[in-house]
Computed example of a mutant assay.
Amino acid sequence: MVKTTLPVILLRGMVLLPYSEIRLEVNNDIDRKIWQMAEDNHDNNILIVPLSNPLDESFEVDELSKIAVMGKIKLKMELQNGSTRVVVTGINRVKVYSYDNYEDNNNILQASIGNTTQFAITPKDEIVLMHKLTREFEEYIETRHDLGNSILNDVVGIKSIAKATDIMATYVPVSYERKIEYLKTINPYTRLLMLLEDIKKERQLVELEQKIDIEVKKQLDNSQKEFILREKLRVIKEELGEANIKDDDIDTIKNKIESANYPPKIKERLSQELKRYEMLSPNSPEISITRNYIDWLIDLPWDKFTKDNNDLVKTRKLLDETHYGLDKIKERIIEFLAVRQNTKNS
């Protein structure tokens, strides 16, 4: 390519790579003028430059990328809502020598561009690399149910790594920053390595999502199975004339266990006793014993604590007020508390 000048369109949040297309809805009068100038004065050619940070309202010309894509207007039509639809195709990467105002218009940029550095790959190496890349890409497409096999038609028969990597990169869901990295990477071999890395990551992600879906489906199937069995059990009990008081009681106990702050071992024990209670027949002599044991475990103040009374004189006074006689027992209690207190202090 001979060094030339083209008007510039800045893209936010979108990257155009060579051999791919983008569709734009143009509502801005300045952008309409830029597209019209490209159509009238530059044989439908235009320079597409993505902004490094799409959220920035303003930018510095010096910060614009020195590698961009020369695009060609494929379609331009006026819509009924007043906007202009433009379809542009990426032709090739170009090196930007400088950015300037277009014919002294401060609102429109133009760029002086030329060819990028060309990297040579031996035909034998290119065949091997293309075979590897095509196989990995085909296997990746098979895992993506949202992408049709027709995409493979776009790469079948391509013998150039430079072209194949640009086409395939448009179908791999990577971040905006990664797409800009693809754009700025001139060496096709480096792009191939990047693409293989991203395809591998995506395949691992898809496999992980499929594994999660299988586990979720399995859990849902188990839950549905349990629900159906419980409903059948409820109907059987109703047919046998058994009241639903026990079922309501079990639900109440479950709610208490879930809502209260029990120690892990106690919660586990309660769950075991509840399963045992659930399996017992209403006519079983053990059902009342099990139910009372569950109540006892639930009612114990597991998460409530009181402050120890270390005043031995006051303790003896309280014992005398509440218990008549029993002097030896009271002395033994006081001795126990005294030893315990001394042990803590030491």
Rank of each mutant, 00 (worst) to 15 (best):
K256G: 03
N309E: 08
T343N: 08
D327V: 11
I141S: 03
Y262K: 03
I141Q: 05
H323V: 15
S98T: 11
V206M: 09
K3H: 09
D247N: 11
D213H: 13
V86I: 01
I214S: 12
G13P: 04
D146G: 08
M168H: 08
R276D: 09
K256W: 07
P264E: 14
P301N: 00
Q110T: 04
S98P: 02
Y171W: 14
L280C: 00
Y102M: 08
E142S: 05
V88T: 01
E63M: 03
T343A: 08
Q204V: 12
I186L: 12
S271R: 14
T122Y: 13
I298W: 00
I167H: 06
A162S: 13
L11K: 04
V339Y: 10
G71T: 00
I289Y: 02
N41H: 14
A260S: 14
L133I: 10
H131T: 15
E335F: 11
K74D: 09
Q224K: 15
D311N: 09
E273D: 08
R332A: 10
Y171P: 15
P7L: 00
P7M: 03
L193C: 09
E60A: 08
T322V: 11
L152T: 05
N292M: 13
S346Q: 13
V156E: 12
K95I: 06
L318P: 02
K200L: 10
Q219Y: 15
